[in-house]
Nucleic acid binder design. Structure first.
Lengths: 343, 343
DNA sequence: TTTTATTTCCAAAGCGCTTTGAATGATTTT
DNA sequence: AAAATCATTCAAAGCGCTTTGGAAATAAAA
């Protein structure tokens, strides 16, 4: 059942039926109701393909799959994707994934996506401090929104969490608890979020005479293995020099830290204080950690949902100012933090 | 630059240009070359939307995001998705994700996907032993291919690995090594792959007087936590009754088993034999396990790639017989297996 | 009553491609 | 030389929707 059939059925023109169905004002409520009823009755569904051709909109948002892994570590990716897809479904948008393949550069992926015009907009994730993608997409005329922020002179829409503030609060808590040697297990340095977190960390501790030397800061993929290795290295230091507290950029890292502690007979929350950022990954909640983990938290799934929402809003009202949301990441104090030994 | 412009440029009809570009035989090689050159020169890209409308094909393959988590555990999902997307890119197909949202049943998701006709075909993953989806999609007239198999009387295309054979070989190896108490840590029972694996396991051990009692078989989400809990339970048994070997359906489970062993001072490859199925997840290779893990292996990423390939082939040649590929999962013996104690 | 808005609806022109059915000219065959 | 065959090319009809620019009918204003 297509539009023509439906309209002849109703004795109306395609124009009127189309407008009735799409909520245009210049059609009387009475006929609108009639049209709606008939559409419902005959199970009429407009053809996505025809609409796309006519409007030039594809009803699709693109997402580039990270080529190198642990770029967005896998668990984060799934959770984020889940959020995007679920909100997109609600708004009857599609999410399509692209990926750099073979020898193709990532830039080529974006160029191809734009050329083929199969997506109306793109979501950029894991932006680097200095990321070429916003400039590229703007130049190509493809609308986009960034999950996170980047150092860029040109304007762009984004949704980010307050990484600096979160890590400032967390580090400050540790300082207030009397910790004087605090380690930061962070993500890789070229990511903007990692830089923000380190800045918050330093701002809270510096000027208090608290050591924030390089050996106490790691910047590496945020996986358990990294946490284990780095914590082992730090715990292996002489007792008077080793950190009494760890601040981790992910729960995965925290798991590694815990294992390293266990291997040394140290208990989290008694011998070592531990705070991690909690992205609210399914089945990896800070509250189910043992002991329950003090954490800065912000749901990456919700971020995905909201990004899609913002993206669609951008497409529908292109004249609105670009979105720029910064979500707080509240510090939830649980049992993994305690006063520094000897305080 | 669209087809009309290009064709007037060339002094040819749209028909000829279209056919030249799409490799139809009834156009001379000379004009084909001319057309190609001109298209290249002007950077002509056919409009996906127009093509979709004209052909009724969307150039898109759909994948339904598992609503409940650990259905396809997250890491597997990412790896699988990565494979699908990478091959789809090569074939210039798109992958779009759908998802059950809110109160919607999963069936509704499929129905909606079909109604909206935004995908040409779908890939079904993680089929249950008795799965309603193949019947549903066939009835709705949506082409599909299954990653795995299911108990179904009606025909369907699929790509699966030889789960039964793999677990038969693995269990047989353990038996040959003299193990008499072997535990199976499997995925949840309603999944077809889990049933296949259990069957292979039993076939290898039964009739050899080897215990395959229920207490030695677990069927639960294939995550580390499950491995830890189940192994702790089993290792907690009196020494004369506890298993001397574990067969795991995933490396995640194996990690849990190893942790349980470590807690009991048991060493994999010396005190306890361990074999796991290795889906070749990035950064989780059996060969980097400590000790290197004896494993049945088959890349889930490659499976994703191949499924897309088969799917596209199905669409292009609808008259070909339905694909039915079963990949072997070779048993690679490494250092985690040894003769049973006292043999 | 005539004029002017206002509301409601319509015909027709795209959107850019594929594909059917036919025409043209060149080549063979009779 | 006429008829038949083949290799190329083309004009035109969709695909199913949106949207422009009126037109008809009704209501309000003069």
């Amino acid at each position: 059942m297509n539009l023509r059939e439906l309209s002849t059925q109703l004795g109306l023109s395609q124009t009127t039926v189309s407008r009735a169905l799409n909520g245009f004002p210049e059609v009387s409520e009475e006929t609108r109701a009639r049209v709606r009823a008939a559409a419902e009755l005959h199970g009429y569904r407009p053809s996505a393909a025809a609409r796309r051709l006519a409007t030039g909109q594809s009803g699709t948002i693109g997402l580039v799959f990270p080529g190198e892994r642990h770029m967005l570590s896998d668990l984060l990716l799934t959770e984020f994707l889940g959020g995007c897809v679920s909100k997109a479904s609600e708004l009857s948008y599609d999410i399509t994934l692209a990926m750099a393949h073979g020898s193709q550069s990532e830039e080529a992926v974006y160029r191809r996506a734009v050329r083929n015009a199969r997506v109306d907009a793109m979501i950029l994730s894991s932006p680097l401090i200095s990321d070429p993608r916003p400039a590229l997409l703007r130049q190509l005329g493809m609308p986009f929104i960034v999950h996170g922020r980047t150092q860029s002179s040109e304007p762009y829409g984004f949704l980010d969490i307050d990484n600096e503030g979160a890590f400032f609060s967390a580090a400050k808590l540790l300082a207030d608890l009397g910790h004087r040697r605090v380690a930061l297990l962070n993500g890789e340095r070229h990511y903007n979020f990692a830089a923000d977190r380190e800045r918050g960390f330093r701002r809270a501790l510096e000027g208090r005479g608290i050591i924030t030397n390089d050996p106490f800061i790691s910047a590496a993929p945020m996986v358990e293995q990294t946490g284990l290795v780095q914590a082992q290295r730090l715990i292996g230091l002489p007792v008077s020099q080793r950190p009494t507290a760890f601040l981790c950029s992910s729960i995965g890292l925290a798991i590694g830290v815990k294992r390293a502690c266990a291997a040394h007979g140290l208990q989290i929350g008694r011998d070592i204080a531990l705070i991690a950022h909690d992205d609210r990954i399914h089945d990896m909640g800070a509250e189910t950690f043992d002991p329950p983990l003090t954490a800065t938290q912000s749901s990456i799934g919700d971020a995905g949902r909201r990004l899609v929402e913002l993206c669609v809003a951008m497409l529908r009202q292109p004249d609105n100012p670009l979105p720029s949301e910064v979500w707080p990441a509240d510090l939830i104090v649980r049992q993994s933090t305690m006063a520094a030994p000897g305080v």
